Amino acid sequence: MIKYRLYPTLIQTFSLFHHEARNANGELYVSEQELLDRINRVPQPTTPAQQRGVNFETALISGRGEEQFPTEIIQTMRKQLPMRYKTQFFVRTAIKDVEFYGMVDVVGGDRAIDIKTTARYQAPKFAHHFQNLYLFGLKSWNIKQLDYLITDFQNVYTESYHYDSYDFQPLLDELELFTEFLEQHRKQITDKKIFNNAQNGLQTSLF
């Protein structure tokens, strides 16, 4: 039975909180209150880095505003896109009692692609990223590979993860910890859409 409806960036925020990740100044990236605000969809201002990432993806896919970015970076990344593809491809699947859902930037052929921009890149940056769980949903479309196409606006990098070889267990363990957090803080959660007692016709196991 589906009890929770979760998306990757939310669980990624929990992961930062759970691991007490800190910035260069030793400050926590995510406090408990900030996590609860994210769960409750409290409006957050878009940072300049986030807006630049949105603008870059638009430029790469549609050509709008591409003059704002290095021509070589745009051309190099476009060469790595499939010949034919769909953008903003909706994926959802059931992982135990969680409906996991979200949008994949690009899907074409036998692979999915997520476009990332970053200030600093160190591989493997996305090995423990919850978008990798999209592979469970993509499998039903005969897509078993998720590529991250990444730029720091100096170079282009690629990370690839495959359903048959990726170790999902660390992500699944944290996913379970997050659902425990949700139950422990249920009274503080005002956006009840995250809790779902309906089956929704989804598969209810991984295998």
Results as ranks from 00 to 15, higher is better:
residue 2 I to L: 00
residue 7 Y to T: 01
residue 8 P to G: 09
residue 9 T to R: 08
residue 9 T to E: 11
residue 12 Q to V: 11
residue 12 Q to T: 12
residue 13 T to R: 13
residue 13 T to I: 08
residue 13 T to M: 11
residue 14 F to G: 07
residue 14 F to R: 05
residue 16 L to E: 15
residue 16 L to H: 14
residue 19 H to P: 03
residue 19 H to C: 11
residue 21 A to Q: 12
residue 24 A to Y: 12
residue 26 G to Y: 04
residue 27 E to M: 15
residue 27 E to S: 12
residue 27 E to K: 13
residue 29 Y to S: 05
residue 31 S to V: 05
residue 32 E to T: 13
residue 35 L to D: 09
residue 35 L to Q: 15
residue 35 L to R: 04
residue 37 D to H: 13
residue 37 D to M: 07
residue 39 I to P: 12
residue 39 I to D: 03
residue 44 Q to P: 04
residue 48 P to D: 13
residue 50 Q to K: 12
residue 54 V to R: 03
residue 56 F to R: 00
residue 57 E to F: 00
residue 58 T to Y: 08
residue 60 L to W: 01
residue 61 I to N: 00
residue 62 S to F: 05
residue 62 S to D: 08
residue 63 G to R: 12
residue 67 E to W: 15
residue 69 F to G: 00
residue 70 P to S: 10
residue 70 P to D: 11
residue 73 I to R: 03
residue 74 I to R: 02
residue 75 Q to A: 13
residue 75 Q to R: 15
residue 76 T to W: 11
residue 77 M to K: 00
residue 79 K to Y: 09
residue 79 K to P: 13
residue 82 P to M: 04
residue 84 R to Q: 07
residue 84 R to I: 07
residue 84 R to E: 07
residue 86 K to Y: 02
residue 88 Q to I: 02
residue 89 F to N: 03
residue 91 V to I: 08
residue 91 V to M: 03
residue 92 R to E: 14
residue 92 R to V: 12
residue 93 T to P: 03
residue 100 F to E: 05
residue 101 Y to S: 06
residue 102 G to W: 07
residue 102 G to C: 00
residue 103 M to V: 01
residue 106 V to D: 01
residue 106 V to S: 06
residue 106 V to T: 06
residue 107 V to H: 01
residue 108 G to I: 00
residue 109 G to K: 10
residue 115 I to D: 08
residue 117 T to P: 07
residue 117 T to R: 04
residue 118 T to H: 02
residue 118 T to P: 14
residue 118 T to L: 04
residue 124 P to I: 10
residue 126 F to K: 01
residue 127 A to W: 09
residue 128 H to K: 05
residue 131 Q to I: 09
residue 133 L to Y: 06
residue 133 L to D: 09
residue 134 Y to I: 01
residue 138 L to H: 04
residue 141 W to K: 14
residue 144 K to E: 15
residue 147 D to I: 02
residue 148 Y to A: 05
residue 151 T to A: 07
residue 152 D to T: 10
residue 154 Q to E: 13
residue 158 T to I: 15
residue 158 T to R: 14
residue 159 E to R: 06
residue 159 E to S: 07
residue 160 S to D: 03
residue 160 S to W: 03
residue 165 S to I: 09
residue 166 Y to W: 10
residue 166 Y to M: 00
residue 167 D to H: 14
residue 169 Q to R: 13
residue 170 P to S: 08
residue 170 P to Q: 10
residue 171 L to T: 05
residue 172 L to K: 14
residue 174 E to A: 07
residue 175 L to I: 07
residue 176 E to P: 08
residue 177 L to G: 10
residue 178 F to Q: 00
residue 180 E to V: 15
residue 182 L to C: 09
residue 182 L to N: 00
residue 187 K to Y: 15
residue 188 Q to R: 06
residue 191 D to Q: 11
residue 192 K to C: 04
residue 193 K to Q: 11
residue 194 I to A: 05
residue 197 N to S: 10
residue 198 A to R: 06
residue 201 G to D: 09
residue 201 G to L: 05
residue 204 T to M: 14
residue 205 S to Y: 13
residue 207 F to E: 15
